[in-house]
């Protein structure tokens, strides 16, 4: 990047490295979207003709639950935290709905799952906000608790993993005209609320304030414990929604359903430009980050490498992208 910019510097002062850097710093979405476009082109080059309406539908369907889970990470990372319980909460919610839907009807089951998730979030929030336990360890412990309870519940109900209600299957894997998945009906309003909430509401500003400088936020009158308790409840609810979509997408209700999505959700938020140290970032970049990760996954699997090589490349690409992103948008 700097090489290109350096070469053009001699001819045109408008395209100097500083200009590019300033542009990327102010509009971090540009390099992200460029990377996404490059990946799409690469997918097309590897398998000519693959990029089309069907492919877009497949990518979107897989990206939506990841984007929602990455939303949990974005919100908590803005305050300098992290939520490692999203995997357990999402799996638990999907499983609770699947195990109860036949008896109580899907809407009631969804409400019960949301209440359970909110309770878990409430406990996490109280731990982080009131007792000031480090979010990493609080959400880790809560993840263990939720996973154990879900396992226990599974033994009590003795349910096999086939009970995903048709409504969720429709939402998670159906699509308008086989292209636009119905899960967009969930993520579009959610994303709008998160984006507007972070930019335009006092609560959103307070999240940035706490993450940027907790002492200054407290001195300015922010009650950080209230903000954090609400934040972790929101995060758990988002995770629950992602769990519904994921169980509908995979048609599997298992208590370890979303475990493998935990680390990619953190990676998506980080690639999307949210600082894990708090105070910087946003949900727009996170959604692009989730798309990037999904396209990378599909690209790697279409290359036909064994699973092991795919994993290695996946990790290496995350490091490379995060490093490049940090360099391109660095403040200095």
């Amino acid at each position: 990047m700097s090489g290109v910019a350096g070469a053009s510097k001699a001819r045109s002062p408008w395209l100097s490295a500083a200009v590019w850097r300033g542009l990327f710093r102010d509009r971090p979405m540009i390099p992200l979207l460029a990377l996404l476009a490059m990946l799409v082109v690469a997918s097309e080059l590897v398998r000519p003709g693959i990029v089309g309406p069907d492919w877009i539908g497949v990518i979107l369907r897989a990206a939506v639950p990841l984007a929602i889970l990455a939303g949990c990470q974005t919100l908590t990372m803005l305050t300098g935290g992290i939520d490692l319980s999203v995997g357990a909460v999402a799996s638990m919610s999907g499983f609770v709905v699947a195990s109860l839907a036949a008896g109580t009807g899907t809407p009631t089951a969804i409400v019960i799952a949301l209440v359970a998730a909110a309770l878990a979030g409430l406990v996490t929030g109280i731990g982080v906000g009131v007792f000031r336990v480090h979010p990493l360890i609080m959400t880790l412990g809560m993840g263990l608790v939720v996973l154990g309870l879900a396992n226990f519940w599974q033994l009590q109900t003795l349910m096999s993993s086939t009970g995903v209600p048709p409504e969720l299957r429709w939402l998670g894997s159906g699509a308008f005209a086989q292209v636009l998945p119905y899960s967009l009906l969930v993520i579009v309003p959610l994303a709008a609320v998160i984006l507007v909430g972070l930019r335009r509401t006092g609560y959103g500003r307070l999240l940035y304030a706490i993450g940027d400088n907790p002492i200054a936020a407290r001195l300015a009158g922010a009650r950080s414990w209230q903000i954090l308790v609400v934040l972790y409840v929101i995060s758990a609810l988002l995770a629950a929604v992602a769990g519904f979509l994921l169980s509908g997408y995979t048609n599997v209700a298992s208590v370890s359903l979303a475990d493998s999505a935990l680390l990619p959700s953190v990676a998506a938020a980080v690639i999307g430009g949210t600082s894990i140290l708090g105070g910087r970032g946003g949900y727009g970049g996170t959604m692009v980050g989730a798309l990037i990760l999904t396209v990378i996954t599909s690209l790697l699997s279409s290359l036909g490498y064994p699973d092991a090589v795919t994993q290695i490349l996946f990790g290496a690409i995350i490091v490379a992208v995060a490093a490049a992103y940090a360099r391109v948008t660095s403040q200095s």
Binding site: L263, P306, V309, I312, G315, A326
Partner: peptide, 27 residues
């Protein structure tokens, strides 16, 4: 070395590297 050179937070680097090392193990 990656943490020092890239200056990305440790948690991110090592999270990504966990995929790499697990992939190597599978290989």
């Amino acid at each position: 070395g990656l943490v020092v050179v890239t200056r990305i937070p440790d948690i991110v680097v090592t999270l990504a590297m966990s995929f790499v090392w697990a992939g190597c193990a599978l290989l």
